[in-house]
Computed example of a mutant assay.
Amino acid sequence: MRYELTDHEWTAIRPMLPNKPRGVPRVNDRRVLNGIFWVLRSGAPWRDLPDDFGPYTTCYNRFVRWRRAGVWARIMNALATAHDASVQMIDTSIVRVHQHGACIIRNRKQSMGRSRGGLTSKIHAVVDTNGLPARLALTAGEAHDNRLAEKLLSRLKSGSMLLADRGYDDDWIRALAVNKGALANIPPRCNRSEPICFSPYLYRARNLVERFFNKIKHCRRVATRYDKLAANYLAFVQLASIRLWLRFNDGVDAPPTASMCQKVEVLSTT
């Protein structure tokens, strides 16, 4: 069936799943994970899960229980430890909240914000040289892009290059990069009185973070937010990112602009 884990992906992710040596053995992990990924990719309600994956309640309960236990976040962090930190790109993407996901009191506490188009949420992401996610976060749709910049860039490594759009053109962000020993290549705003060093050529590599958002939004459960709880929606974003890492390690999604990233690395050290 479509969207199922390949043998290589299952071999890679299996050791990172919780171990249950005692008690009643749980339902086949691979079948349940395939059911969760089917919901992620298709965007269908849990009740529409095909019978091949077993009862939908089993998949849903496993998804929520492991989310609460931090399993998805740990797998994401474990895979992201191998990221190429020579170039890091930060950006955001707005997602429309479906009407079924807005039926909760005090939407603001669930990272939902109201604008002209209705309720929206905003995904914040930091990706590496290959366009693979390293850090993820979620806010309301009307939040400024740089609201979580300090948190997401806290692991910026010395000698790396930070690429971002004009929304991150603030002195404190540039100072943060300098304190971390990194180089910030951010286009200056038109109202800046003092000139800022900026390379349009290096900035071209920033399209990788845009491609990342495009890839995870192939998953309908990410492209439109159906979840009332922000924690559940962020877990789906993490699962989509985990799948990107697994496919990259399997050699399916090789970075299309590796040569460009190599040029960025060379120029950033000169």
Score class of each variant (00 low, 15 high):
I90F: 02
R62H: 12
R155S: 04
I123G: 05
S160R: 01
Y56N: 05
T224M: 09
K20Y: 11
V39I: 15
W72G: 06
Y201M: 13
V266F: 08
H100I: 13
D170N: 10
A205T: 02
N130Y: 06
I186A: 03
E194H: 10
V126L: 10
W46D: 01
P133G: 03
C261Q: 08
S193F: 07
D169G: 04
Q238Y: 10
L153Q: 03
G251L: 01
Q238C: 13
A137K: 02
M16D: 12
A235C: 09
D128M: 04
K122G: 07
G101I: 05
S158C: 11
G118R: 09
Y201W: 12
F63T: 01
P15R: 10
R74P: 05
Y60I: 06
L183I: 14
P187D: 12
W38A: 10
W245L: 04
I105M: 12
A182N: 03
A143N: 08
K157Q: 15
S193Y: 09
R189S: 14
E265C: 11
V264N: 00
Y233E: 08
E265G: 08
A235E: 00
K157S: 15
A125F: 01
R114N: 15
V95M: 12
P21H: 06
D128S: 04
H98F: 15
V97F: 13
R106A: 13
C197W: 01
A85C: 15
S193T: 15
M16P: 09
Y226L: 14
R192V: 13
L163M: 07
L148K: 05
D7G: 02
Y233P: 03
R30K: 07
A73Y: 09
P188N: 08
E142K: 13
E194D: 11
I242V: 15
R192L: 11
R74F: 10
I13Q: 00
D91R: 06
L136P: 01
I105W: 15
R108T: 15
L5Q: 05
L5Y: 11
Q99V: 15
P195M: 11
F212K: 00
S259Q: 11
V222T: 06
A85E: 10
K20D: 14
G23F: 11
H8F: 12
W245R: 03
P200E: 05
R96G: 08
Y203A: 02
D250L: 03
A230I: 04
P255M: 04
A235I: 05
R96S: 11
I173L: 09
I90S: 01
T224G: 07
I13K: 02
